[in-house]
Amino acid sequence: MSYIDVLNKAEDQVTPGMSACQGCGGELVLRTVLKIAGENTIVGIPPGCMAGAGVVGWNYANGLKIPVHIPLLDNTASFLTGLSQIYERKGRADVNIVAVAGDGATADCGFQSLSASAERNEKMLYVCYDNEGYMNTGYQRSSTTTKGSRTSTTPIGTVINGKQQQQKYLPLILSMHGLTYCATASVSHMADLVMKVEKGLEASKKGFAYLHVFSPCPTGWAYPADKAIEVARNAVKANVFPLWEMEDGTYKINVANKMPISVEEFVKGIGKFKNLSREDVGSIQKAVDERYELLKRLAGV
């Protein structure tokens, strides 16, 4: 059975009503992960887009068909650590312990508990849907926001021209914690995403598994909602978001771009990048190229 067949046959654990924005990558991540994880799953979703849309649902009714809890913004991994350990003590190792968290709750506010849980190799699958900002509160910059992005805290003006710093590359940082499994994925490459969710769930029975998913946001990024998958696909094509995995210390690039498109082509039509200067584009391109070369060396390419 193909990975797409697996997805088609799986039962949706998210209710039909959904209050996420049109074209939301986070919703697609949530539905896909929980479809594969199935009903024998407990999920933690910290404050953010998916806590509001995926948990509250419509009219304050639960948006999920499985047990879900909204921990604090900074303690998702800690909360799930306790949950994982109590179920293991009860002899219920079959229960999937899963986090679905945004980049703010993962790379910034929650990084301390995330790193600590990863270092201790706690048994869970932690999924970050990365839309490069605190979207649920009006799009403030996070540490994973791409340089030059226009956000409410890095506006376009005479003092600064969008975010001034390069983004934190969190998945590689997590992989250096000696995880059982670590991977990147994108909503534009669904078969690859399903494969990695399955691997992550299997690895979570042995230790900490981490999946970092590219989840562009039409509302915050300012592009048409029907272009969401195209934007995500172009990010992979440009090596802005390369797809790779690490299993037991061995790195593998899943999608190798022999002729990648340029960063300049990737940013076209995306509102948050509309004021990028030529120097800004060149700076992002340099960071993208250096990061991809590092990944190739790690993968032995």
Rank of each mutant, 00 (worst) to 15 (best):
S142R: 00
R92L: 14
P216M: 03
I261E: 08
S215R: 03
V100G: 03
A256F: 11
G52K: 14
G91M: 03
D103M: 05
M246C: 11
K205D: 06
T145V: 06
R31H: 09
V14M: 09
G54N: 08
E88S: 13
V281C: 04
K65H: 14
T137F: 10
Y126R: 02
V55E: 06
N40E: 13
K227N: 13
Y169M: 09
L172F: 11
L294M: 10
E293D: 15
E279R: 03
S283E: 10
Q112D: 13
S152V: 05
Q167C: 14
T32S: 15
I229M: 10
S204G: 01
M135F: 00
L193Y: 13
A93P: 07
I270D: 02
I160P: 01
K90A: 14
T153H: 03
W244F: 15
V159Q: 11
L179Q: 02
N136H: 09
E245Y: 02
I66V: 14
K272N: 14
A228Y: 06
M195G: 06
I160T: 09
T32N: 12
R291C: 13
Q164K: 10
P47A: 02
T154Y: 09
S115G: 08
Q22E: 14
P242L: 07
Q166D: 15
L243M: 08
D108E: 09
V6T: 10
Q13N: 09
I270L: 00
I70P: 00
V194H: 01
K168V: 14
E132A: 13
G110H: 02
P71Q: 03
G25H: 03
N96T: 05
T180A: 12
L64Q: 02
P46L: 04
L72D: 10
C109N: 09
S113C: 05
V288N: 13
V43S: 04
M1P: 11
T106Y: 00
L83C: 14
G271E: 07
M50T: 05
L34W: 05
R297A: 15
N275R: 06
L7R: 08
